[in-house]
Design a protein around this nucleic acid. Structure first.
Lengths: 342, 342
DNA sequence: AGGACAATTTAAAGCGCTTTAATTCCTGGT
DNA sequence: ACCAGGAATTAAAGCGCTTTAAATTGTCCT
């Protein structure tokens, strides 16, 4: 009984191999391989018969074997933060971009227990030909070291080292655009809620400072500590409310933080944008929710994704060795949360 | 010049193989393999030397090769919807649960352009030993057919077919709990915003209906068309506002939809929970945002993840063949958005 | 010293597929 | 009838690792 069951299970388990298909048609495995990959060569007759046999048998290629056999894998490793709505958008576009050029994606995600290094090693262990890292926080030289194993494309973050490919938007410029718009509306007291100590945060903070100075508002520069979470935004809001006077506008490091600010202000009965204007950064899904309808800066997820894949392909298929940095122009998305100052 | 460059690149590319490590130490590849996998056998001396050599060479195992060589892969394929915050939570817990039992995860995501079938085929092509499908929408027999290739564990959705493993919460009961609580607060006019035509939606709708009847509120049963998006919730809210009179409470299929309802009501100046109480389902990250602070039902992401992995492991390592259905009890998470009726 | 037995180590056979070089099979032209 | 040359097919050599069975080494008795 037990044995019969076990045996049956094993039999079911045994996936048909290329050889089985070949035997069924009466050709060699080589021919089957060619047909199944759509390579020119086999005759139409063979092609049809192989296709039929494969379908009959429910044949499905064993990727591990084909990856091993072909020197190439045509796989791009993508490191994402599964919790970031912006990364979700990027992944979606990376998928289609990769598909268009005949590549496939293998995803690896960092979590509290799984750090960047582990995530990247997994990617490499699967023989990703290139690594697309979304907003990596690792130090430059760690990333540069990786580049020895596979081309690294850093997305969304500036990198000093001139060896890596980078696709990003001009974060400082993006924040600058927000400040410009606010100033144009008549704001002078514009407070910035910081995003912590990453490179991205540094750039956005600088963008804020520079823009404020450009408008001669040096005296009004004020940066509140924060990070990339909603909680941080809320803390910042509390902080603002505790002070003598509210600024007329608040610019946050990203949308999540901005939403926290929004929440904190709402709770205190402060109307937005009536009393205070609020802006975020990323144009992620949350910001678009009508209940927030947050003014923010779009990073052009699709465009970044396409450039990232293109960069990988150029490295892999066109032998490019010069590093390239693509800096896209961010653009302001004006929604409900900003208005003329009270 | 060109050639030199190309050659150098190739040299850099060539990852060290097991054989290289073996040669460096002067032992066989078999020994190296054993050491690197932590298998007992090799002497301490050998072990140390191998470890050192591997580190020196920057050796990194080629997963495709080891997967191919070992009959086992110890990989669980997970299909997720990268846009769902609830799935993100699940993935995180699946990761740690899998890690604890020595398995690894390979993720595949559906997007607009990549349907469930493609996603699952990718997982299979990578030799996932079991498939953990988060909220699959495919018909029962499609899923059952898959089960022939690898054990399938369906998470979050009821399945009629008695062959597959299922881990889910009692959705009808969950919605029932919300209705009970609302009724206890004094509500009678409770409208439900539907989640479309999936199985999950069906269950939750039924939970609503059953609970209403149990309380003798048959006459107040009212179901509004909807789906799993914020937009649908907002449409539903508009619909409610157009009617003669608002219900005193609205229960939505999931949190996203509920948030849409919230947004729609807010826009119309309807206070929540003052005039209308609102509840969602999933206890996802959004619902916890203090600006929503949505009353909802928790599905126990971590628990579901652990059971899902356990189910897979029992199938794979303990030879279980009887399908098992784990139905967890959902529990109400009461937050700000419900109160006594006006 | 001889031998039994355990501890290490390794040779070699795959895993299922790709790919190259070679072979076989057809054409049509002379 | 014969052969050049292209089309179709295939044999066979891996890809880098695991794993089993066998070989080797070492240890401890008697």
């Amino acid at each position: 009984m037990e044995d019969a069951g076990a045996e049956r299970r094993r039999a079911e388990k045994k996936r048909p191999r290329l050889e089985d298909v070949a035997a069924r048609v009466g050709v060699s495995t080589a021919s089957v391989s060619l047909v199944l990959r759509g390579v020119a060569g086999p005759s139409e007759r063979t092609r049809q018969r192989v296709l039929k046999a494969a379908a009959d048998l429910g044949y499905q290629v064993d990727r591990t074997a084909s990856l091993l056999a072909s020197r190439r894998t045509r796989m791009l490793g993508v490191m994402v933060d599964v919790h970031s709505p912006f990364h979700a958008d990027l992944v979606e576009h990376l998928h289609s971009a990769a598909e268009d050029v005949g590549y496939d994606l293998v995803l690896s995600t960092q979590t509290r227990t799984r750090d960047e290094r582990t995530a990247i090693e997994t990617l490499l262990a699967f023989r990703s030909e290139a690594l697309i890292l979304l907003g990596p926080t690792a130090p430059v030289d760690t990333l540069a070291a990786l580049d020895g194993k596979a081309p690294v494309i850093v997305v969304g973050r500036r990198i000093e080292d001139g060896e890596l490919d980078v696709v990003r938007t001009a974060d400082d410029d993006g924040v600058g655009q927000i400040v410009d718009r606010l100033v144009a509306l008549g704001h002078r007291e514009i407070t910035y809620v910081d995003g912590g100590k990453g490179v991205i945060a540094t750039d956005r903070r600088r963008g804020y400072r520079t823009a404020m100075r450009r408008h001669g508002l040096d005296a009004h520069i004020k940066v509140l500590r924060g990070d990339n979470t909603e909680a941080a935004g809320e803390r910042a809001a509390r902080h603002l409310l505790d002070a003598d006077q509210l600024p007329t506008a608040v610019v946050a490091f990203n949308d999540q933080s901005a939403i926290g600010v929004l929440a904190g202000l709402a709770r205190a009965g402060v109307s937005v944008p009536g009393e205070v204007s609020v802006a975020g950064y990323d144009d992620d899904r949350l910001s678009r929710l009508s209940c927030f309808d947050l003014t923010t800066v779009s990073q052009g997820a699709e465009e970044q994704a396409r450039y990232a894949v293109a960069a990988a392909v150029e490295r892999l298929d066109q032998g490019r060795t010069e590093p390239r940095e693509v800096v896209l122009a961010p653009h302001l998305v004006v929604r409900r949360t900003i208005a003329e100052p009270r």
